[in-house]
Amino acid sequence: MAVLEIDGLPFHVQRLSPADGRPPAATLVLVHGLLTDSLASFYFTMAPALAAAGAEVFMYDQRGHGRSGRPHTGYRLERFVADLAALLDHSFPAGPVHLVGNSFGGTVAFGLAEQRPDRVASILAIESEPASPAWAAKLDGILRRAETELVRTSTLAWVAAERGAHTARLARSAGRLLAVTSLARDIPASLLPGEERLAAIACPVLAVYGTESDLVEQAAWLDGLLPRCRSAFVSGQEHSVLVEAPDAVLELTFDWLREQGVVLRGAAACDLQRSAR
Protein backbone atom coordinates (compact mmCIF):
# COMPACT_ATOMS: atom_id res chain seq x y z
CA MET A 1 0.00 0.00 0.00
CA ALA A 2 1.41 3.37 -1.02
CA VAL A 3 1.55 5.80 1.88
CA LEU A 4 2.64 9.45 1.87
CA GLU A 5 3.20 11.12 5.19
CA ILE A 6 2.08 14.75 5.46
CA ASP A 7 2.80 16.50 8.77
CA GLY A 8 3.08 13.14 10.48
CA LEU A 9 -0.26 11.85 9.16
CA PRO A 10 -0.14 8.84 6.80
CA PHE A 11 -2.15 9.23 3.58
CA HIS A 12 -3.10 6.20 1.51
CA VAL A 13 -2.51 7.15 -2.11
CA GLN A 14 -3.05 5.29 -5.36
CA ARG A 15 -1.54 6.33 -8.65
CA LEU A 16 -2.43 4.94 -12.07
CA SER A 17 -0.08 5.92 -14.88
CA PRO A 18 -0.98 6.04 -18.59
CA ALA A 19 -1.70 2.48 -19.69
CA ASP A 20 0.38 2.89 -22.87
CA GLY A 21 3.48 3.84 -20.89
CA ARG A 22 3.88 7.15 -22.73
CA PRO A 23 4.16 10.54 -21.02
CA PRO A 24 0.82 11.58 -19.53
CA ALA A 25 -1.62 13.65 -21.59
CA ALA A 26 -2.75 15.33 -18.36
CA THR A 27 -2.58 14.92 -14.59
CA LEU A 28 -5.86 14.28 -12.80
CA VAL A 29 -6.28 14.35 -9.06
CA LEU A 30 -9.46 12.72 -7.76
CA VAL A 31 -10.84 13.81 -4.40
CA HIS A 32 -13.54 11.73 -2.67
CA GLY A 33 -16.39 12.75 -0.36
CA LEU A 34 -17.17 12.60 3.36
CA LEU A 35 -17.99 9.75 5.73
CA THR A 36 -18.93 6.74 3.60
CA ASP A 37 -16.61 7.66 0.75
CA SER A 38 -13.00 6.73 -0.04
CA LEU A 39 -10.71 6.64 -3.05
CA ALA A 40 -12.35 3.31 -3.91
CA SER A 41 -15.27 5.26 -5.45
CA PHE A 42 -12.86 6.45 -8.15
CA TYR A 43 -10.57 3.44 -8.23
CA PHE A 44 -13.39 1.14 -9.28
CA THR A 45 -15.15 3.60 -11.59
CA MET A 46 -13.41 6.21 -13.74
CA ALA A 47 -9.75 5.87 -12.71
CA PRO A 48 -8.70 2.88 -14.89
CA ALA A 49 -10.43 4.34 -17.97
CA LEU A 50 -8.71 7.68 -17.44
CA ALA A 51 -5.32 5.95 -17.22
CA ALA A 52 -6.19 3.99 -20.36
CA ALA A 53 -6.95 7.32 -22.06
CA GLY A 54 -3.42 8.52 -21.28
CA ALA A 55 -3.91 10.41 -18.01
CA GLU A 56 -1.78 10.25 -14.90
CA VAL A 57 -4.36 9.58 -12.20
CA PHE A 58 -3.72 10.33 -8.54
CA MET A 59 -6.16 9.38 -5.78
CA TYR A 60 -5.89 9.57 -2.01
CA ASP A 61 -7.96 8.80 1.05
CA GLN A 62 -8.78 12.02 2.87
CA ARG A 63 -7.88 12.32 6.56
CA GLY A 64 -10.00 10.03 8.73
CA HIS A 65 -11.22 8.08 5.68
CA GLY A 66 -10.33 4.82 3.96
CA ARG A 67 -6.84 3.69 4.86
CA SER A 68 -5.42 7.10 5.74
CA GLY A 69 -4.64 8.23 9.26
CA ARG A 70 -7.51 9.19 11.58
CA PRO A 71 -6.52 11.90 14.06
CA HIS A 72 -9.07 12.65 16.80
CA THR A 73 -9.30 16.32 15.85
CA GLY A 74 -8.52 18.60 12.93
CA TYR A 75 -11.37 18.17 10.46
CA ARG A 76 -12.19 21.71 9.40
CA LEU A 77 -12.37 22.19 5.64
CA GLU A 78 -9.13 24.20 5.65
CA ARG A 79 -7.26 21.13 6.94
CA PHE A 80 -8.56 19.02 4.05
CA VAL A 81 -7.56 21.76 1.60
CA ALA A 82 -4.09 21.98 3.16
CA ASP A 83 -3.75 18.18 2.82
CA LEU A 84 -4.54 18.38 -0.90
CA ALA A 85 -2.10 21.27 -1.38
CA ALA A 86 0.65 19.36 0.44
CA LEU A 87 0.03 16.15 -1.50
CA LEU A 88 0.18 18.08 -4.78
CA ASP A 89 3.33 19.92 -3.76
CA HIS A 90 4.89 16.56 -2.94
CA SER A 91 3.71 14.53 -5.93
CA PHE A 92 3.28 17.12 -8.69
CA PRO A 93 5.50 20.06 -7.75
CA ALA A 94 5.34 21.65 -11.19
CA GLY A 95 2.26 23.14 -12.77
CA PRO A 96 -1.49 22.92 -12.32
CA VAL A 97 -3.55 19.72 -12.31
CA HIS A 98 -7.12 18.89 -13.25
CA LEU A 99 -9.21 18.21 -10.15
CA VAL A 100 -12.21 15.90 -9.98
CA GLY A 101 -14.13 16.16 -6.72
CA ASN A 102 -17.03 14.01 -5.59
CA SER A 103 -19.41 15.73 -3.16
CA PHE A 104 -17.26 17.11 -0.30
CA GLY A 105 -14.23 16.35 -2.49
CA GLY A 106 -15.45 19.08 -4.82
CA THR A 107 -15.76 21.45 -1.87
CA VAL A 108 -12.09 20.73 -1.12
CA ALA A 109 -11.23 21.32 -4.80
CA PHE A 110 -13.00 24.70 -4.79
CA GLY A 111 -11.11 25.52 -1.58
CA LEU A 112 -7.79 24.80 -3.25
CA ALA A 113 -8.72 26.82 -6.35
CA GLU A 114 -9.63 29.74 -4.10
CA GLN A 115 -6.36 29.59 -2.15
CA ARG A 116 -3.88 28.25 -4.69
CA PRO A 117 -5.18 29.15 -8.15
CA ASP A 118 -1.76 28.33 -9.63
CA ARG A 119 -2.28 24.62 -8.78
CA VAL A 120 -5.66 24.12 -10.46
CA ALA A 121 -6.14 23.80 -14.22
CA SER A 122 -9.83 22.93 -14.00
CA ILE A 123 -12.43 21.48 -11.65
CA LEU A 124 -14.99 18.82 -12.40
CA ALA A 125 -17.29 18.91 -9.39
CA ILE A 126 -19.65 15.95 -9.04
CA GLU A 127 -22.69 16.63 -6.85
CA SER A 128 -20.78 19.28 -5.03
CA GLU A 129 -20.72 22.90 -3.93
CA PRO A 130 -18.17 25.38 -2.61
CA ALA A 131 -18.18 26.16 1.11
CA SER A 132 -20.69 28.85 2.12
CA PRO A 133 -22.78 29.65 5.22
CA ALA A 134 -25.64 27.64 3.69
CA TRP A 135 -23.28 24.69 3.07
CA ALA A 136 -21.99 24.82 6.66
CA ALA A 137 -25.55 24.89 8.06
CA LYS A 138 -26.64 21.99 5.88
CA LEU A 139 -23.59 19.88 6.79
CA ASP A 140 -24.16 20.66 10.47
CA GLY A 141 -27.64 19.16 10.21
CA ILE A 142 -26.52 16.12 8.24
CA LEU A 143 -23.56 15.40 10.52
CA ARG A 144 -25.53 15.79 13.75
CA ARG A 145 -28.11 13.37 12.46
CA ALA A 146 -25.49 10.94 11.17
CA GLU A 147 -23.65 11.04 14.49
CA THR A 148 -26.67 9.73 16.40
CA GLU A 149 -28.25 7.59 13.70
CA LEU A 150 -25.26 5.71 12.29
CA VAL A 151 -24.44 4.04 15.58
CA ARG A 152 -27.99 2.72 16.05
CA THR A 153 -28.47 -0.90 15.07
CA SER A 154 -32.04 -0.14 13.98
CA THR A 155 -30.80 2.49 11.52
CA LEU A 156 -28.10 0.20 10.19
CA ALA A 157 -30.61 -2.60 9.73
CA TRP A 158 -32.84 -0.21 7.80
CA VAL A 159 -29.92 0.83 5.57
CA ALA A 160 -29.06 -2.83 4.97
CA ALA A 161 -32.64 -3.59 3.96
CA GLU A 162 -33.04 -0.52 1.74
CA ARG A 163 -29.59 -0.12 0.25
CA GLY A 164 -27.86 -3.46 0.75
CA ALA A 165 -25.20 -4.91 3.04
CA HIS A 166 -22.30 -3.02 1.51
CA THR A 167 -23.87 0.40 2.04
CA ALA A 168 -24.76 -0.63 5.60
CA ARG A 169 -21.14 -1.56 6.19
CA LEU A 170 -20.00 1.82 4.87
CA ALA A 171 -22.57 3.52 7.11
CA ARG A 172 -21.25 1.65 10.14
CA SER A 173 -17.70 2.76 9.31
CA ALA A 174 -18.93 6.33 8.98
CA GLY A 175 -20.55 6.01 12.41
CA ARG A 176 -17.19 4.91 13.84
CA LEU A 177 -15.43 7.86 12.18
CA LEU A 178 -17.93 10.28 13.75
CA ALA A 179 -17.73 8.56 17.14
CA VAL A 180 -13.96 8.79 17.51
CA THR A 181 -13.27 12.17 15.91
CA SER A 182 -14.43 15.79 16.11
CA LEU A 183 -15.39 15.79 12.42
CA ALA A 184 -19.11 16.43 13.00
CA ARG A 185 -18.32 19.59 14.97
CA ASP A 186 -15.31 20.69 12.91
CA ILE A 187 -16.86 20.76 9.43
CA PRO A 188 -19.58 23.33 10.29
CA ALA A 189 -16.90 25.45 12.03
CA SER A 190 -14.74 25.63 8.88
CA LEU A 191 -13.35 28.92 7.65
CA LEU A 192 -15.72 30.05 4.90
CA PRO A 193 -14.53 32.00 1.90
CA GLY A 194 -16.78 34.97 1.10
CA GLU A 195 -18.73 35.01 -2.15
CA GLU A 196 -16.25 37.50 -3.60
CA ARG A 197 -13.43 35.02 -3.02
CA LEU A 198 -15.39 32.26 -4.74
CA ALA A 199 -16.28 34.59 -7.61
CA ALA A 200 -12.53 35.00 -8.17
CA ILE A 201 -12.10 31.28 -8.97
CA ALA A 202 -11.07 31.77 -12.58
CA CYS A 203 -10.40 28.19 -13.71
CA PRO A 204 -12.98 26.38 -15.85
CA VAL A 205 -15.52 24.42 -13.79
CA LEU A 206 -17.98 21.74 -14.83
CA ALA A 207 -20.58 20.99 -12.18
CA VAL A 208 -22.23 17.59 -12.62
CA TYR A 209 -25.54 16.79 -10.92
CA GLY A 210 -28.02 13.95 -10.82
CA THR A 211 -31.36 15.32 -11.95
CA GLU A 212 -33.05 13.83 -8.86
CA SER A 213 -30.61 15.40 -6.40
CA ASP A 214 -31.45 18.27 -4.02
CA LEU A 215 -28.30 20.03 -5.24
CA VAL A 216 -29.82 20.68 -8.68
CA GLU A 217 -31.43 23.78 -7.22
CA GLN A 218 -28.08 25.46 -6.74
CA ALA A 219 -26.84 24.86 -10.30
CA ALA A 220 -27.97 28.25 -11.64
CA TRP A 221 -26.55 30.07 -8.61
CA LEU A 222 -23.13 28.43 -9.03
CA ASP A 223 -23.08 28.99 -12.80
CA GLY A 224 -23.77 32.66 -12.13
CA LEU A 225 -21.30 33.02 -9.27
CA LEU A 226 -18.21 31.49 -10.87
CA PRO A 227 -16.90 33.21 -13.98
CA ARG A 228 -16.30 30.01 -15.98
CA CYS A 229 -18.76 27.45 -14.66
CA ARG A 230 -21.45 25.47 -16.39
CA SER A 231 -23.56 22.52 -15.35
CA ALA A 232 -24.28 19.07 -16.74
CA PHE A 233 -27.02 16.72 -15.57
CA VAL A 234 -27.26 12.94 -15.47
CA SER A 235 -30.88 11.98 -15.75
CA GLY A 236 -32.59 9.84 -13.14
CA GLN A 237 -29.63 9.98 -10.75
CA GLU A 238 -29.37 11.20 -7.17
CA HIS A 239 -26.35 12.18 -5.09
CA SER A 240 -24.40 8.94 -5.72
CA VAL A 241 -24.18 9.54 -9.47
CA LEU A 242 -20.44 8.71 -9.58
CA VAL A 243 -20.89 5.13 -8.44
CA GLU A 244 -24.43 4.61 -9.73
CA ALA A 245 -23.83 5.91 -13.28
CA PRO A 246 -20.06 5.64 -13.78
CA ASP A 247 -20.24 5.42 -17.59
CA ALA A 248 -22.21 8.64 -17.92
CA VAL A 249 -19.83 10.46 -15.58
CA LEU A 250 -16.83 9.09 -17.48
CA GLU A 251 -18.18 10.33 -20.81
CA LEU A 252 -18.73 13.79 -19.32
CA THR A 253 -15.18 13.69 -17.95
CA PHE A 254 -13.69 12.73 -21.31
CA ASP A 255 -15.61 15.53 -23.06
CA TRP A 256 -14.56 17.96 -20.35
CA LEU A 257 -10.88 17.06 -20.68
CA ARG A 258 -11.00 17.39 -24.47
CA GLU A 259 -12.54 20.80 -24.00
CA GLN A 260 -9.55 21.66 -21.80
CA GLY A 261 -7.27 20.77 -24.70
CA VAL A 262 -6.22 17.37 -23.35
CA VAL A 263 -5.42 14.94 -26.17
CA LEU A 264 -6.86 11.63 -25.00
CA ARG A 265 -5.49 8.33 -26.27
CA GLY A 266 -6.64 4.72 -26.61
CA ALA A 267 -10.37 4.07 -26.92
CA ALA A 268 -11.15 7.63 -25.77
CA ALA A 269 -9.27 8.97 -28.83
CA CYS A 270 -11.45 6.83 -31.12
CA ASP A 271 -14.59 8.30 -29.53
CA LEU A 272 -13.32 11.71 -30.54
CA GLN A 273 -12.79 10.65 -34.15
CA ARG A 274 -16.29 9.21 -34.19
CA SER A 275 -17.88 12.36 -32.85
CA ALA A 276 -15.82 14.52 -35.21
CA ARG A 277 -17.20 12.73 -38.25
Binding site: S38, A40, Y43, A165, L170
Partner: peptide, 17 residues
Protein backbone atom coordinates in the same frame (compact mmCIF):
# COMPACT_ATOMS: atom_id res chain seq x y z
CA UNK B 1 -16.20 -10.41 -0.91
CA UNK B 2 -18.78 -8.10 0.62
CA UNK B 3 -21.60 -10.30 1.91
CA UNK B 4 -19.55 -13.20 3.25
CA UNK B 5 -16.11 -11.75 3.97
CA UNK B 6 -17.36 -8.29 4.93
CA UNK B 7 -14.89 -6.41 2.78
CA UNK B 8 -15.48 -2.73 2.14
CA UNK B 9 -14.66 -1.21 -1.22
CA UNK B 10 -11.46 0.31 0.19
CA UNK B 11 -10.35 -3.21 1.25
CA UNK B 12 -10.68 -4.26 -2.38
CA UNK B 13 -8.31 -1.44 -3.36
CA UNK B 14 -5.75 -2.81 -0.90
CA UNK B 15 -6.28 -6.28 -2.30
CA UNK B 16 -5.80 -4.96 -5.85
CA UNK B 17 -2.41 -3.55 -4.88
Amino acid sequence: FTDDLELESIDLVTLAA
